[in-house]
């Protein structure tokens, strides 16, 4: 499962985007009709398009997660803490595993003790269980990321290759992104006093390696790859499975794709 780094011209449609998106258009229209306060015109604001994923980048990273393969061992969550200098206490996590237990009476129980790192205790009253499964969660590296939209200073951003990152030297620590993330993927570092999150192990990608959680997943429930290229595990995953994303109604356009996702997951 290597990250394909060949520069193929043969892209999947996901990598190409219209030059002007709707937000762009609305902004231009607003500017033209109201006239922007003088204060704004003083400010050099680079073109919006630079913030969108895709563009001329070689990669457009994404992740695939097969719910039916996840055994809830928690190795991914542990590896993430090791790899990314995430404090063990308090229990902040970049990635975690949820256990869903849907009972015959319709009740849905969800838990994630310590993010699943220490495993899961046995289910009480196993007999009344209709369905039960594990769901790994992490930052969805949304194409239209609400966290990037709300960051007041540009300390969080989407790279050309689609990863949503935080500039820890520039973050003012307002916490707006923590509020804006629908997935609970962001947390506030109590030591560095900045917002933190999953980076898709960007430092590993830069060295041609897959994210730590993918590296250690023993059942290949997690796959990593490049949405811009056809020949890689993720593209295959997307071809052969029915795919869901989390909270699609919020139109964040996640780049973490789930196969065999249950409707109760949110």
């Amino acid at each position: 499962m290597m990250v394909d780094s060949s520069t193929s011209l043969d892209r999947e449609p996901t990598a190409t985007r219209e030059p002007v998106d709707r937000r762009d258009f609305l902004w231009e229209a607003l500017k033209a009709s109201l006239g922007v306060p003088i204060a704004l015109s003083v400010i050099r604001v680079p073109e919006l398009r630079g913030m969108q994923a895709g563009g001329d980048a070689e990669h457009l990273y994404g992740m695939g997660i097969d719910i039916r393969k996840c055994i809830g061992c928690g190795r991914c969550a542990q590896a993430c803490k090791n790899e990314n200098d995430v404090p063990d206490e308090p229990h902040f996590v970049n990635t975690w595993i949820e256990r869903y237990v849907i009972r015959t009476d319709g009740e849905v129980l969800v838990d994630s003790p310590n993010g699943g790192i220490d495993g899961f205790p046995p289910i009480e009253e196993e007999g009344g269980t209709l369905r039960t499964f594990f769901v790994p969660k992490l930052c969805n590296h949304c194409e239209d990321a609400p966290c990037v939209q709300v960051c007041p200073v540009g300390a969080t951003f989407i790279t050309d290759d689609g990863a949503v990152l935080v500039d820890e030297e520039y973050c003012i620590g307002c916490g707006y992104c923590v509020q804006a993330c629908p997935y609970g993927a962001r947390w506030f570092d109590p030591v560095k006093h900045v917002a933190r999150k999953c980076t898709f192990c960007y430092h590993r990608l830069a060295k041609g390696k897959v994210p730590a959680c993918v590296e250690v997943c023993p059942t290949s429930a997690r796959l990593f790859g490049d949405l811009g290229h056809r020949a890689n595990p993720l593209a295959r995953f997307l071809r052969f499975n029915e795919i869901q994303v989390l909270k699609p109604h919020l139109n964040t356009k996640p780049k973490v794709f789930y196969a065999n996702l249950d409707g109760e997951v949110r």
């Binding site: 400010i43 007041p152 200073v153 973050c171 003012i172 506030f188 006093h193 917002a195």
Partner: peptide, 18 residues
């Protein structure tokens, strides 16, 4: 703020989508 000393950045590089 986590870093009040960086608050001036909001004048330097305001993200106009925010």
């Amino acid at each position: 703020l986590g870093h009040p000393e960086r608050s001036y950045e909001i004048f330097l590089t305001p993200n106009r989508q925010s």
